[in-house]
Design a protein around this nucleic acid. Structure first.
Lengths: 199, 199
DNA sequence: CCGCATGTTTGCAGTGTCTGCACGTTTCTG
DNA sequence: CAGAAACGTGCAGACACTGCAAACATGCGG
């Protein structure tokens, strides 16, 4: 399972850079942290930093573009008999459980990102890539097209809306709330067509 | 109505910079346009560029942060008897009509933004500011809270999802489709709880 | 255990973004 | 028609990011 030494070292360096960036920004704020600082704390040269992340912001967010397709794959793996919303909802719950299982990194990530609009934008970019992949899978499953029909893109966009909202409420609860439950609650509201509350 | 000369000049300069940025990026691509180029075409010094836009990307997108609160204000102005979804939907249709009324700028903007992921992120930032303002108004109207309840943030996020999807389909139709109709169609799907199509 | 092929790290030089500061010019107010 | 306030501009400098070429580490066949 453990690939060669080379591969393990690369993963370690990547994680070291991400954690260094995250901690430094949490301490001093985004604009008071330079790439040189991050590289120094991670123990590599400044030039090496850019072998791992294309921008400073990406290192702070620390999400692989590869992860963007994960949700879409999970949806594709679900039984074709399920309606799209059901499949997406189930896949999302799995994903929420994964996130909640990492109680060190994710809360810090969310706090730091929330405090800096520039990072929020970067995170949105990852979400959008994920959305596109999801829309494609939904189109497949529902026999629609991503470019002309509203359904796939809309379902993917709403999925992202539910996830973002849940993550934000998780943050607001200081990570005491149960993330999957927040996701579920969001989907219940959507499934009901967003009726006025306390009605 | 026309404010003083000073104010009019500022608006003109701002627009000139935005249009210069938009055209140049459409011609050459984002990375082959420098701030100096944009300033030169707009007829101001490079230093002045930064008196109007904090970054190059912002000049291309060209949206005032002030506009972020417009939708929220429009919702606040609607009769309190309307359910939140109805009020938001109506305000959004007005906004879509406004956008469709600018058949020069918006299509070019959308094409250019769509072609450059970095700009998409910038546009997302504007949407998010708008979302926050909208969530606050929805919370007011529905007697809920933005930090603990799911409803306001979720409605705001779904609104953004509907708008983004509609804009993207408008682009995909080469701007031949009717934007307000696309918005309507999106809301119909959401109101029905996103049922599987062709059902 | 050696040495070559390949992938990784690093330094260096250069371009471009963006900021603070100081100064001259234009618009506004009375 | 002043004096105040706002605006435009040049300059110097910090920082982000890239291409290139030279060290360096690792994996692999002998």
């Amino acid at each position: 399972m453990t690939a060669g030494l080379r591969e393990r070292k690369k993963q370690a360096t990547r994680l070291a850079l991400h954690e260094a960036a995250l901690q430094l920004v949490a301490e001093r704020g985004l604009e008071h942290v330079s790439v040189d600082d991050v590289a120094a704390r991670a123990g590599v040269s400044p030039r090496t930093f850019f072998n791992y992340f294309p921008t400073k912001d990406d290192a702070v967010v620390g999400l692989d573009p590869r992860q963007a397709g994960e949700l879409a794959e999970a949806v594709r793996a679900r039984p074709a008999s399920e309606p799209p919303v059901t499949a997406v909802r189930a896949a999302m719950l799995d994903q929420a459980r994964e996130v909640a299982r990492e109680p060190q990194l994710w809360p810090l990530r969310l706090q730091v990102v929330d405090a800096h609009p520039a990072l929020t934008a970067r995170l949105s970019a990852v979400f959008e890539a994920s959305e596109r992949a999801l829309a494609a899978v939904v189109a497949e499953r529902s026999g629609t097209r991503t470019d002309t029909d509203a359904y796939p893109a809309l379902l993917a966009a709403v999925q992202a809306a539910v996830m973002r909202t849940a993550l934000h409420r998780w943050l607001a609860s200081d990570f005491t709330a149960d993330l999957p439950a927040l996701v579920d609650e969001g989907w219940d509201l959507v499934a009901a067509g967003l009726p006025a509350p306390t009605a």
